[in-house]
């Protein structure tokens, strides 16, 4: 569609605005084996195949509905750092009418990312009729951002789709995988949040002219102000490793469960000891050893 058909706020008064949400993520994260920190690199960051599938799905739907005379626009929305902009600009080359980056410099929880995206998707802003996301991001994504988005925007949701077909403008058929190899066919009407698997579509390759033209395009940047509570890193108490137990004896299931849970065996009575720290530590270790939590080779 012609970008001129969009008003300055990005609204499609007589048309459908499809928004594809993508996440700038570490595609091949380096994880320190000692302390588990994730090292991100600009070069190995990018968008997942399911994000690309979301953009391609939006472009195909827009094309199909445009062919039926409906004005459609595709906006790509990303919550990410400034470093994502070169790659975001490539979405202009494949046919996105607008590309918007909501500034997010650091890792945030799915709920917070969704809150940030939703603030840009509100009717006063991008006014999306369909929001299409990748089902999970490549950095251990939980797939919950689309669900949070649907909650924030008050839209219906259909997540983890494996097929999308356009019908009349503003509605589409979606296929979802169910247990046991079954499939669920859904009819979706505006307004909805959907997420697609990477297998749904492969992002088209842009023409050279469009790639060159995209170099001159500007990614809109929104700096949404959300007061998130300060995150407190909680230190959890050390938990001993689970013990390996022999299979419970018993002729029937009930007796085995009773054996396994120790429900009818005597429990250790609670004790209160008032001791010096050294003696207290000794007593704790002694008790842990008695319960079998400590290796016999360890000094007690």
């Amino acid at each position: 569609m012609n970008p001129a058909d969009l008003n300055p706020a990005g609204l499609n008064p007589a048309g459908i605005n499809l928004v594809a949400c993508v996440k700038w993520a570490e595609l091949r994260p380096e994880i320190d084996p000692l302390h588990g920190s994730v090292e991100a690199s600009q070069r190995s960051s990018g968008f997942s195949s399911s994000d690309f599938a979301a953009v391609e799905s939006a472009l195909r739907l827009a094309q199909a509905w445009s062919d039926q005379g409906q004005t459609c626009g595709v906006t790509v929305l990303c919550a990410g750092p400034e470093g994502a902009e070169d790659s975001l600009r490539d979405f202009f080359a494949v046919g996105a009418t607008r590309v918007v980056r909501v500034h997010l410099a650091e890792q945030r929880s799915s709920a917070q990312v969704a809150e940030l995206l939703a603030s840009a998707l509100m009717p006063s802003q991008l006014n999306a009729q369909f929001v299409i996301c990748g089902d999970v991001s490549s950095d251990r994504g939980s797939g919950s951002v689309p669900a949070y988005l649907a909650h924030h925007l008050g839209m219906q949701q259909a997540l983890g789709l494996i097929g999308l077909e356009s019908t009349d403008p503003g509605s589409l058929h979606a296929t979802r995988r169910l247990d046991g190899g079954r499939r669920e066919r859904l009819l979706l009407m505006t307004a909805a949040v959907i997420s697609v698997e990477g297998s749904v579509a492969t992002l088209r390759r842009s023409s050279l002219a469009a790639t060159l033209a995209a170099k001159q395009k500007t990614v809109e940047v929104r700096k949404q102000q959300i007061d998130w509570p300060t995150e407190v890193n909680r230190l959890r108490p050390w938990r001993p490793r689970a013990r390996v137990l022999a299979p419970p004896a018993g002729d029937d299931a009930l007796s085995r469960i009773l054996e396994l849970t120790g429900a009818q065996s005597g429990s250790t009575a609670a004790r209160t000891l008032r001791l010096d720290p050294e003696q207290a530590a000794e007593a704790v270790l002694e008790q842990l050893a008695a319960w079998g939590y400590l290796d016999d080779s360890l000094p007690t």
């Binding site: 390759r205 023409s207 050279l208 790639t211």
Partner: peptide, 9 residues
């Protein structure tokens, strides 16, 4: 000629 659609430069 490049491997992009309409890829002559």
């Amino acid at each position: 000629r490049t491997d992009r659609p309409d890829g002559d430069l």
